[in-house]
Amino acid sequence: MILEVATLDVKAGQEQQFELAFQQASPIIASMKGYLSHQLQRCLENKQRYVLLVNWATLEDHTIGFRQSPQYQEWKRLLHHFYDPFPTVEHFEPVVFA
């Protein structure tokens, strides 16, 4: 399993609109091959900052399957205009299980 961690900084004053748009976009990512789960969390100290955590079966399910899909174009249309700067996205793999 791969964890995608995206740090999302939303333009000031657009947080509520972003959250509504994210609710619309959630079924898009959830429908993709290799998708396992996701959650969006808002920072307590900086109300404009969010983290998106997505569990994928493989790295390629995200980087190729999702990012190169027609569905990703709709995802971009719904969400990408909210970001400033563009999100940082990193991928993690488990090393210790509890």
Rank of each mutant, 00 (worst) to 15 (best):
K33M: 04
Y83D: 01
E60T: 06
C43D: 04
E60C: 11
R42K: 08
K33F: 07
P87Y: 00
N46C: 15
Y83W: 13
R49S: 10
S69C: 01
A57K: 01
Q71N: 11
L36G: 12
S69P: 05
E93I: 08
Q24L: 11
S31P: 01
D61G: 06
S69F: 01
L44R: 02
Q17C: 15
S37F: 14
L52P: 06
I28S: 06
K47M: 15
A21H: 01
Q17G: 11
L36C: 06
A25W: 04
R77H: 13
Y50M: 10
F92T: 00
L53V: 13
N46S: 14
R67G: 05
A57C: 07
K76V: 12
Y35H: 09
F86S: 01
Q71Y: 07
D84R: 11
I29Q: 10
D84S: 14
F22V: 01
I28A: 09
Q39Y: 14
F82L: 12
D61A: 12
Y83N: 02
C43N: 08
L78I: 04
F82G: 13
A21Q: 00
S31W: 03
N46R: 13
L59E: 04
L79K: 11
L78W: 03
H80C: 13
H62V: 12
Y83K: 00
L59A: 06
I64T: 10
P85H: 07
R42C: 06
Q23C: 13
E90D: 10
P85R: 06
T63E: 06
Y35M: 06
L36K: 02
Q73T: 04
A21F: 03
F92K: 04
A25T: 07
E19F: 13
S26W: 15
T88D: 15
R67H: 10
W56S: 08
Q17H: 04
Q73Y: 08
H38K: 04
A30N: 00
S69M: 00
G34F: 09
S37W: 14
K47L: 15
C43F: 15
F22R: 03
R42H: 01
S37R: 03
A30E: 10
R77Y: 07
F86N: 02
E74S: 10
D84V: 14
F18K: 11
W56E: 01
I28Q: 06
I28P: 07
S37H: 08
Q23H: 06
H91I: 04
E19M: 14
G65Q: 12
L40W: 09
V54D: 11
P27M: 05
L20Q: 12
G65A: 01
F66C: 06
L36D: 01
R67S: 09
S31F: 07
Q23A: 14
E60L: 01
A30T: 05
L40Q: 09
M32L: 04
A30V: 09
C43R: 08
T63Y: 00
L78C: 07
F18G: 09
W56V: 00
M32C: 07
V89G: 11
Q41V: 15
G65T: 05
F82I: 11
H80E: 13
G65H: 04
S31K: 03
E15I: 09
E45I: 00
Y50I: 05
Q39F: 14
H81T: 00
K33G: 09
D61Y: 08
S26Y: 15
H62Q: 09
N55I: 13
I29N: 05
V54E: 00
L40V: 08
E93S: 00
L79V: 06
V51G: 05
Q73R: 02
E93N: 02
E60M: 11
